[in-house]
Amino acid sequence: MSTNDEDFIDPAPWINAIPQAHKGRGAISNIAGRYETQLIETVDDGWRPYAADTDINPALKTHITPELAKTILSRNQSPDLPFSVTLNPYRGCEHGCIYCFARPTHAYLGLSPGLDFETRLYAKTNAPELLRRELAHKNYEPSPIAFGMNTDAYQPCERELKITRRCLEVLHECDHPLGMITKSALIERDIDLLQDMTAKNLVTVAITITTLDHSIARTLEPRAASPTRRLQTIEKLAQAGIPVLVSVAPVIPFVTEQELENVMRAAADAGATAAGYTVLRLPWEVNPLFQQWLQTHFPERAERVMNRIRDMRGGKDYDANFATRMRGEGLWADMIRQRFAKGLKRYGLGKSGRFVQLDCSLFRKPLSIPAPKKTDGQLDIFG
């Protein structure tokens, strides 16, 4: 395959020599981002700073850097997405899901989409103030805001920082519609706001469940809530009257694909009313990172998994075509599509289309607008 293919990075240099897994982390290594001019390779000389009889590297600490963002709402025109506006309170995500399509964004920061993405995080501490100012702009037109597309808005650091909570309070005040997707039980903390907004048709929530197998989840999405805990979250949201759907995403051949129907059934039993799915996407650095993970945790089936992925991508590791990138193409993609459709009927689930039905007519601009925060340093002389 040519390295000129869109969204393609040759994985061979990374998967030939497999390092060991890090406890509590999804990525196996810190591969270089595609904008780096130098490639650093780690060589094991046998002098390890930890016990020789262990097969897992020491745990890595999470570092969170406060950041004053310039804007907080991002817009897209992707025809295969049901939303056009997103809000991401953080950069990077401690959940460490190895398949995360947002990993390549860390390359823009001069950091690795690998371990850096899940250990070196940035918290947009001024997000609520920015959101209030953007909603107050005279030309602002309300459209449902999707929370946490490039990062989980309820990842572990949110418990103390409460940036998502404060942004949610702004939207609650303005009667602004929103959709949330998460793998965290922390969303239960905000049931009070979500329940109140639900009464006005302003909220939809998606809980992602890729697998019901705890052993797979521990390596696939190591710091997200367990599958059982996520089902409990669906149940609590449903009991509060909040519309909740299950996102079976991504479907990974021979890793999670065989659980598709079981996940749908368990979510429906917990109270989910709709479901959606995507097949695994491997853009940019996600490709070598995922193949490293496969070789480390499922070496006996790694080649089989990748062959099935290529069957659904026209023979390539990934195809960014808007028409097929979420569902794939070919025989195997059609089989998954048919299984999902039958699952919807069997378990009484609707399709995940409620996002576009949220009410934008109730929106009112915020009453108070905070003054912009000044950054520390030399830029202050221009203030």
Rank of each mutant, 00 (worst) to 15 (best):
L73Y: 01
K70M: 08
C93T: 03
V43E: 13
L109F: 09
I72R: 01
I28G: 06
I40H: 15
A32Q: 14
G96N: 04
I98S: 06
E118T: 03
Y99G: 08
E41K: 14
L121Y: 00
L68T: 10
G96F: 03
L130A: 06
E67W: 12
E129M: 04
C93V: 04
G33Q: 07
P79D: 03
E67S: 12
L131H: 03
L109D: 15
R48F: 05
R34V: 05
E118V: 02
C93E: 05
H95P: 09
L68E: 03
I72S: 01
D116W: 02
T86L: 08
S84Y: 02
L109R: 14
S112N: 02
S74A: 11
H95M: 12
P128W: 01
T119F: 04
A107Y: 06
L115F: 03
L73R: 00
F117Y: 15
A27S: 15
E94R: 12
C100V: 07
P58Y: 03
P89C: 10
E41D: 04
V85S: 12
N57S: 08
D116G: 03
Y90P: 09
Y122T: 10
C100F: 05
L111Y: 01
C100E: 10
R132I: 00
T42R: 15
S29V: 02
F101R: 07
A32C: 11
D55C: 09
L109V: 00
T42K: 13
L109Q: 11
P113R: 01
H63G: 00
V85N: 08
T71W: 01
L68I: 13
Y35P: 00
I72W: 00
R48Q: 15
